[in-house]
Design a protein around this nucleic acid. Sequence first.
DNA 1: ATGAAAGCGCTAACAA
DNA 2: TTGTTAGCGCTTTCAT
Lengths: 337, 337
Amino acid sequence: MPNSHPTLRDVARLAGVSHQTVSRVINGSEDVLPETRANVEAAIKQLGYRPNAIARSMARGQTHTLACISPNLTDYTFASVIEGAETEARQHDYFLLSSSATDPKAFHALVDELVGHRRVDGLIVINPYSDDRFQHIPEKFPVVFVGAQSHEQKISSVCLDDEKVAYEATRHLISLGHKDIALVTGPMEEDCSLDRTEGYRRALQEAGIPFDDSKIIEGDWSATSGQDALLSFVEQGRVPTAVFAQNDRMAMGVLRAARDVNIKVPTQLAVIGVDDMPLSSYFDPPLTTMRQDMPRIGQEATRMLLDIIQKKNTDQREVKLSAQLVVRQSTSDKGGD
Amino acid sequence: MPNSHPTLRDVARLAGVSHQTVSRVINGSEDVLPETRANVEAAIKQLGYRPNAIARSMARGQTHTLACISPNLTDYTFASVIEGAETEARQHDYFLLSSSATDPKAFHALVDELVGHRRVDGLIVINPYSDDRFQHIPEKFPVVFVGAQSHEQKISSVCLDDEKVAYEATRHLISLGHKDIALVTGPMEEDCSLDRTEGYRRALQEAGIPFDDSKIIEGDWSATSGQDALLSFVEQGRVPTAVFAQNDRMAMGVLRAARDVNIKVPTQLAVIGVDDMPLSSYFDPPLTTMRQDMPRIGQEATRMLLDIIQKKNTDQREVKLSAQLVVRQSTSDKGGD
DNA sequence: ATGAAAGCGCTAACAA
DNA sequence: TTGTTAGCGCTTTCAT
C-alpha cells in the first residue's frame, strides 16, 4: 500500500473480475452474483479501496456538491441557515460548500469559480439584495434565493414573510398601548428592510396611527447602528415610547443606548426585535422578538434546489415562512424570560 | 451555444490549433507565439469557455480544495476562524469547504467522504478535543488542528495560548484586589478548558491565594451554563467577589444571573470572559474580556496547511497566539466601554 | 513553438 | 451476469 491509492482496477485485479464489475458493486447494482459481490467486497476491504469522488464527478458530469454563498459566516442568522442547509444536503448525499462574498466583486468571482468552472451542481444565495448579483449566474443553472425574492428572473426563493412579521411585531407594540413607535430598519437597498417597513406601516394604518417618516431611522443590522438610532432620537428630544428594530442586534443596541441615557425599559421605552438570537434572552432586559426558524429556511432552500437539480420540480416557487412572537421583558414586565 | 459547455477542443477547433496549445494558453505557458495566443484567447472569449475544475483536478491529481471541519457553524468563534481561513485560502487560489460535525460519528463520516474519497487536498480541524477523532485520518494526509494540540501524533496546530490567556485574565482580577475568584470552565474533556484552568491556578498560586476546588464549576460554553454556575454559588451561600468565565457566552450568563439575584456588577462581583464577541461590549454591564484574534488563527492554520501541501514546510509546528485584555465595566467602573 | 498520444479513475453504453 | 470499449475534459510526457 504505497503512496498512491488503490483504484477500481487494482480491486478488479485482486478479485479476478473486470473493473466494471467492481463499479457495479460499489454502485449497488443488482446484477451481480452474490458470490462475485462477496469476492469484490473482500478485495475492497483488503486494499482499503475508496472510490475517488473527483473521478466520479468527472464521469457522471455531476459533482454532487451544492454551494451556498452568503455575505459572511459570522452573522448568526446566516450561519443558522447554512447549518440547516448543510444538514439537509447531507441527508441527500450532497455536499454543501459554503463561502462568503461581501461585495459584488467577490460575489462574481465566486460564482465564476463555482458555477463557471462547474464545481457545483446548484447554488443557494443568501441575501441577494442587489439585483445585479444574479445577472452573472448563467441562465438555467439551478439557483435558489434565501431572504429575498427575485424580481426580474424567475428564480425560486424562500424567506421570512417579512411584511407579516413586521406587521405582527408592530401589532404587539400597539396592543400594549403604544402610539409613538419608532422604526429602525436594515439597509434600504435590501428587500427585507423594505418589506418589514411595509408591515410596520400597515399595522400603524390599521390602528389609525399616523405614519411619520421622521420616526424611521435606517440602520445596517449592527448593534452600533441601533444604539446610534436611539441616541439620535434622544438628541432631537423626541424619544418614542416604543421601538421596533428590524433585527435583534439593532434592538440590543437600542437597549444599550437606553441604559446609557437612563431610559427605563420597558416602562419608558418598549423594544422589540426580529430573529431571537441565542443571546437575546440574556440581555438586560431580555429582548422581546419575532423568532424565526433559520435552519428550516436553509432546509427548505436545499430541498427546492435538489428538486430543481433532479428535475423533480422545476417550477418557480416562493416559500414564505412566518415567525413567532416571543414576549420578554423588553416590552412587558409580565413577559417570560 | 447549446446546453453543454464548450471544451478545450471546441476552442482548439475554432482557433485552428491543437487542444494542447489551448491548454498552454489557459495555463499561462511562455511557449506560445503571441499571435497564436491572441487567436486562442479570442476563441475562448467567443465561446465563453471556462476550464472545468473537476477535469483539472482529475488530471492533476489535486483538487485545490481544503476542508475545514468544526463542531458547528453558529458559534461565533468557529465562524470567525473559518472566515479567516477562507480568506487566506482564496488568496492562494484554493477553495475552502466548511462543514460541521457535532458528534464523533458525523466527524468520521465527514473525514471519510472528504479525505477518503479524495475530495480535498488538506484538512483543518477546529476543536479536535477528543483524541480518537484524528485516528481516522490517514497518516501523511495534510492536517492542521485549530484550538488544540495533538497529543499522540505529530500534527501541526495553531491555537490560543490558553494557559497564558487565563493567567492574564486571573491576574487582572487579582490586580483589582480580588482574592475570592471563582472559575467557570468549558467541558473538561477539551484541552483548552484544562489549559485555561491551569493558567488560573498559576495566577492564584503566584499571588499566594489558596487554590480551592470548590470554586470551580464546569460549564459547556453556553450562556445557560454560566448562569447556572453563578446561581449554584448563590444557593450555596458562597458568592465569590469575582468570576473568570472561560468564554464570553458563559460570562454573559453569569452577568444575567447576577442581575436576576440582584448582585451588583462590578461592585459586588467582577466578571471577565474570553473572546470578545461583537455583543460583549453591548452587555449590561459591558463585559471585560480577553480578546482573541480568530480570523488570524484561521489564517495561520491555512498557511500552515498550504505549506504542508506544497511541501514547503512539512515540519510539525505549534503556533500559540496571545490575547489582549479589554477592560470594560464588568470588572471596573472605570473601564472603557 | 506546437502537436500527438496517453492517461487521471471512473461510468455508461454495448456486447457476449 | 459479466466483460469490453469508449469516453468525461483536462494535463503531461514526448516528439516534431
